[in-house]
Nucleic acid binder design. Sequence first.
DNA 1: CTGAAAGCGCTAACAT
DNA 2: ATGTTAGCGCTTTCAG
Lengths: 325, 325
Amino acid sequence: MARAAGVSQATVSRVLNGNAKVDPALRELVEAARRELDYVPNASAKSMRTAKSETIGIVASEILNPYFPRLLDALTREARGRGLSVLLWNDEDPMAPMAQAAVAAGSVDGVVFAAARESTQGVDLLAGRGIPVMLVNRGWRDKPVDQVTSDHEASGYQAADYFLRHGRERIATVFGPRDTFASPAREIGFRRRLDEAGISIAPERWLVGTTSYEHGWAAGMALLAARPLPEAIFCSADVIAFGLLSALGAQGVQVPEEVWVMGNDGLPMSAWQPFDLSTHRQPVEDIARIGMDRLVARMGGAHDDPHRILLPTELIVRGSTAHCA
Amino acid sequence: MARAAGVSQATVSRVLNGNAKVDPALRELVEAARRELDYVPNASAKSMRTAKSETIGIVASEILNPYFPRLLDALTREARGRGLSVLLWNDEDPMAPMAQAAVAAGSVDGVVFAAARESTQGVDLLAGRGIPVMLVNRGWRDKPVDQVTSDHEASGYQAADYFLRHGRERIATVFGPRDTFASPAREIGFRRRLDEAGISIAPERWLVGTTSYEHGWAAGMALLAARPLPEAIFCSADVIAFGLLSALGAQGVQVPEEVWVMGNDGLPMSAWQPFDLSTHRQPVEDIARIGMDRLVARMGGAHDDPHRILLPTELIVRGSTAHCA
DNA sequence: CTGAAAGCGCTAACAT
DNA sequence: ATGTTAGCGCTTTCAG
């Protein structure tokens, strides 16, 4: 390439990186040669020399969770907009071994944890070594690690508040796993609002299981077994609510006339007619943008205290709660 | 690392790569030091020296298509099982510029095209330069490029055959975009079976649009406007069928009593009670496994003719067609 | 402002 | 069987 342009290797580097002052004539020579040859600098050589890879890794453990594609789409767009490549690790191990190895090998400059489950050790290992780490949509109050998340606890609180404001006090709830971040936070928020109102829920109406259609279905069947029916049911994830609504429908229970149902996540699917589900929309694009901003700042050497950013969710009222009985 | 183990750099390399014979005592020395230091060889240096990155790229243009997560999950698992890293490019440009740049920079050894749309130019550029390229779930009869895909045309043929075998001859169809691979192939197969039976479909009952719930909904509304209703409707994607079923339901049309509906893809969601959709299941895991096998062979230097592998889909009969009117 | 040269951390050829 | 050495393609001093 330097030969083709008739200049030194150093000049090529200077032109391509735009750092130093180069004579316009030489610059044009280099750029012509680059166009001619479709030249792209070798990433390994550059990375070895600079100790930067211009690549981030994303740790994902739940690609099949219907919540994930939106987040992945947003994250990859943000990365692209910043000239960063994305390594995707489909890894459910809490140690995040693929991330550890890639960081140790210098393959990535930073790591986004998008995994739903609480993989403390993997994050600790990286953060402890000073590697730029970003937690998206995972609250983790005590850890000195950057994190951007929608305010799961507030959305739980607001869901309960919405039920109570509309006079629905005989309530049931269906939650996802306790070893994730979002679901327990929503539980805490929901319970807090109930406590304020002095309302309690019997254990058999406070169900915990997986984040899945199947769990929602099973929960629906279980809740229908006892009378009187709840006036309102909160699900910690839309996909759970889909299963619940399906079970209610299969048993001939009218929503919202007999029971209100509210989900959480704001999946596009929640607007589909058979569900028409009231829910809280998560600001996924904002999470990705702000999170990536922060990660890039860390990779650029920012040494300030970790940020913990909570973004508000937006209540979307649809047919599953809209019409009073 | 060589210093820590008290041996030469070359011996370290030999132990870690396991290629050459090394004295067991020295080997143990090296391995002890590696455990001690958590040493991982620098990926850039290795890559520069070997001109291999042990990384593949995946070109994806439709992360939000509900079909995609299963494929991505399967592909990343297969890659991990082979010790390959995965760069994900969320890129809807037909030239696949991110893939071009990464290949030119030596960042990847091979490229999987998982994009639904027909991005001919990007594939041509890579394949023309002899880069290992794999097309998953995209038929491309004429191109000298490896490809593994479910047999979209056969699944269309079988869907029509199923309708006709059950005496459903007043048929409507709802397809996805013509500039993709899967949908037109399904169209061709479906039409071929109809032609064999001498059955034709009026243009207003042969709808083409996007692969989306919304298109399915709109198609449903359009098809309901004319009487008599079709006896059976084929959708080229499950997600279209979801919209169609929703529209039929909203208009009080009974499925399957009044109309049969069949989808295509075999999404897990198609089993959900509100849809209970007959469909063709794509062998996504097999596609990923066989495709990755082939790509790895190419990256290993295989120079034989491109493979074009068609995998059969499996008809799943559910409530949307099961019960005769 | 430009070129020459060193060196990033590996692997492979060569020498022992 | 092991060590020594060259060199992959860049960026960055350092001279000029």
